Structures are given as structure tokens and as C-alpha cells.
Computed example of a mutant assay.
Amino acid sequence: METLADLDARVTECRACPRLVEWREEVARTKRAAFRDWTYWGRPVPGFGPADASLLIVGLAPAAHGANRTGRMFTGDSSGDVLYAALHAVGLASRPTAVSADDGLTLRGVRITAPVRCAPPANKPTPAERANCRPWLLDELRLLRPTARALVVLGGFGWQATLPALAEAGWAVPKPRPAFGHGVRRTLPASDGGPPLDVFGCFHVSQRNTFTGLLTPAMLRDVLRDAAHVAGL
């Protein structure tokens, strides 16, 4: 039976989308001046967190000079700075910053993942690229299903991509699908009668949202606390 570690290893070798492969590798070659001494990861980014996580966080895609550089979700960019500071504040991360994959950061009962695993140009994957990447999220959700009790989706794109995957992974998603919104909470029964999954919507931790105040640190902490409570953390 495949483990999450097996899945993560397969993710990092994916070359299914020529445009994304070319872009991520070009970024890794040319680099940003501030990171010229870095050896960029330049590959698909696997999920981050324990295999028995009860709380899942789903974002969008790796940032070109963030996770595409460091090889770990939300690590090395401003969005990650906001997310990990909030996770640390509510007791779910061992430290408030995430700078590299070997910085010692650990998560307590939380796994962070995304529906697209390669950094896309302009942060906009195509519909075909999203479809190519969907099986990775689906397999990850299936492997985490025995322990997952709550899931926080960051942003409308993640919401649209995650709900169909949740339905395929064994949770009953109502039709029409619930609309995204910050603070939205929906309880999805398990199709086989097992434990339900509570899904929370949260504005994405992008610079656009955090710099304008659409998402404040307090708003993010509130959603994470509510989800952690449901997850038993």
C-alpha cells in the first residue's frame, strides 16, 4: 500500500505539463538577484506535514521564488510568512518563520498541500494543468482520510479545486457546491458513514489580500483556531 512518503516522492518527479516544467526550471536557472546564491528546487512541491494530520490546509500553487526555490510548501515567501506566523500563534507550528526546508520547522497535526504542485507563470495554471495535477491532491486526500477531521481552503481557486476532489475521496459534497467565502464552514459527511470533514473557507494569504487588509492576521488566526478545535488539536 502506498504511503504519503511514496506519494510525495512520485510528485517530485512529475513532468506532465510542458509549460510548467519549462517555467519552473527557467526560474530555477535564472533565479532572483536576492537568491543568486541559492540552489533552487525547481521541481513539483509535495505536501508538508505529518502523515496522520487531522487538519489539512490547501493553498493554490508554489510561488516561483518561494516553494519553487525551497522545495517546501509556503516556505521562503511573504505568503508563508503570514501563514506560519499564524500557525505558530495558535500552537500548530514549532516556529513563526519558514525560510528553508531544513530550518527545523515542524507542524503539529497539520498538513499543508495545494491543488497545483508546480509554480505557474503569473500564478495562473491553465484548466488542463489543473486537471493534470488533480490526481495528486486526490491521492493525498485518500491517504489522509482516516485521520482528517478539518480542512482550511485558502482562496476561491483552492475551494473550486478541492471540493470535487473531496467528493472523489469519499466525502459527500452537496449539489450545487457551496460557494466560497471567508469564514464559510461546511460539514461534509463521509460517504461510507465514517467521521465527517469540516471544511473552512479563508481568504488566501497573498500579498494582495494581506497588504490591503482583506485578510488580517487576526482573521486568519480565528479560522485556524476554529478548524484546529474541530480537528482535536
Rank of each mutant, 00 (worst) to 15 (best):
H229D: 15
A64T: 08
G66I: 04
L188F: 03
W41T: 01
W38P: 04
R111G: 06
R69P: 04
H88K: 09
R69E: 08
T75I: 06
R111E: 06
R117S: 08
C118S: 14
R186T: 08
L214T: 06
L143I: 15
R24E: 15
R32W: 10
R29W: 02
L60D: 12
A122R: 14
P146S: 05
R177M: 15
V90G: 04
R24A: 11
D103V: 02
G193M: 03
A114V: 09
G49P: 03
H204S: 01
L87N: 04
L55D: 03
Y40C: 01
A131V: 13
P121R: 10
T113V: 08
P96Q: 05
G201M: 00
T147L: 06
W136A: 15
P44W: 09
A33R: 12
E129K: 15
N123D: 08
G194A: 10
P46K: 05
R69Y: 08
S54P: 08
E168H: 13
R29C: 01
P176I: 10
H88G: 08
T30G: 07
V99H: 09
G155Q: 00
A228F: 07
Y84L: 11
A122H: 13
G232R: 09
P217C: 02
A227Q: 02
G170I: 04
D81V: 02
P178L: 06
T12Q: 12
A98L: 05
V110Y: 07
P46G: 12
L163W: 06
E140N: 14
Y40L: 02
C17W: 13
S79P: 05
L188N: 02
L214N: 04
P120S: 13
T126C: 15
W171I: 06
W23S: 15
T3M: 07
A119D: 08
A190H: 05
L188S: 02
R19M: 14
A231P: 03
T216W: 01
Q160R: 14
A128Y: 10
G109T: 10
Q160M: 14
A89G: 13
R43V: 12
L151R: 04
P115A: 04
P125F: 10
P178Y: 05
F180Y: 12
R32A: 08
C133K: 15
D37C: 09
R43G: 08
S100A: 12
A89Q: 05
V223G: 00
F180C: 05
G59V: 00
L107N: 05
T210H: 01
G49R: 02
H204R: 00
L92T: 06
R29M: 02
